[in-house]
């Protein structure tokens, strides 16, 4: 595995040297790390700057600390796994691939995520999420586990506002605060938990080497657009 120091080698040289497995050390606010990476594995040490793994296009980016704002912006494919927390606007307009955050996510995580044919965006947040989670969601799956926050509220205000497709799963039995009347909340049954959530959460847990069973404990609720209300008709009439 190659080890590169972002201070000595700079961001551009890293782009040329990728392909296999690389560790990038000493990050401190540098933007666009792993941007549009198509292949290989990039380990990021330190605190990477904004727009980390934006437009990610098949590569794998693993972060040992926290990420700042706009990580995985418009990501297309691949995996971004963050061991710490993520800032605001995580996975904005994501079109495919997986984003896993073991800690918390800031405001506006998963805004306008999409799914198309075999492309399905998946965002899993291990801790809590801020307000506007999955706003205008157009497809894909968002899961918030609230690990270590059992019994607390794990989302902020305006969860799923304006979403018209896709599903938000929350590991809680509490309905999010001021949930829009254009959304439906339902309890997740065992069959759906096993068929939909177990494979994703098992993959999430293995990315951070934590026990999957702990992440699957307890009940989940799901939030989806109410097909009989205007949003889904407005943008994606079926």
């Amino acid at each position: 595995m190659k080890v590169l120091d972002i201070r000595k080698n700079g961001l551009r040289s890293i782009g040329r040297q990728l392909g296999e497995e690389t560790t990038l050390t000493g990050c401190l606010g540098e933007r666009y790390i792993g941007c549009a990476l198509q292949e290989g594995i990039l380990h990021v040490e330190g605190t990477p700057g904004n727009a980390l793994a934006s437009y990610l296009d098949g590569g794998t980016v693993l972060v040992d600390g926290n990420a700042q704002d706009a990580a995985a912006d418009t990501m297309n494919a691949g995996l971004l796994a963050i061991k710490g927390s993520a800032g605001d606007a995580l996975a904005y307009g994501m079109r495919g691939g997986r984003v896993y955050v073991l800690g918390d996510a800031g405001y506006r995580a998963g805004v306008h995520m999409k799914a198309y044919e075999d492309r399905k965006s998946i965002l899993v947040i291990g801790g809590k999420a801020g307000s506007f989670l999955g706003e205008y969601l157009a497809g894909g799956i968002i899961i918030v586990l609230g690990l270590g926050h059992e019994g607390e509220r794990i989302t902020g205000y305006f969860c799923g506002n304006g979403m018209y497709a896709g599903t938000i799963y929350l590991r809680t039995d509490q309905t999010p605060l001021n949930l829009s009347d254009k959304l439906l909340k339902r309890d997740v049954d065992t069959r759906e938990k096993e068929s939909v959530l177990r494979p994703i959460i098992t993959d999430f847990a293995s990315a951070f080497s934590i026990p999957a069973e702990k992440c699957l404990e307890g009940s989940f609720i799901a939030i989806e657009a109410d097909g009989s209300k205007s949003y889904s008709q407005l943008y994606a009439a079926v």
Partner: peptide
Amino acid sequence: SEEAAIRI
């Protein structure tokens, strides 16, 4: 504004 500015 950014965590990096604290970490330094």
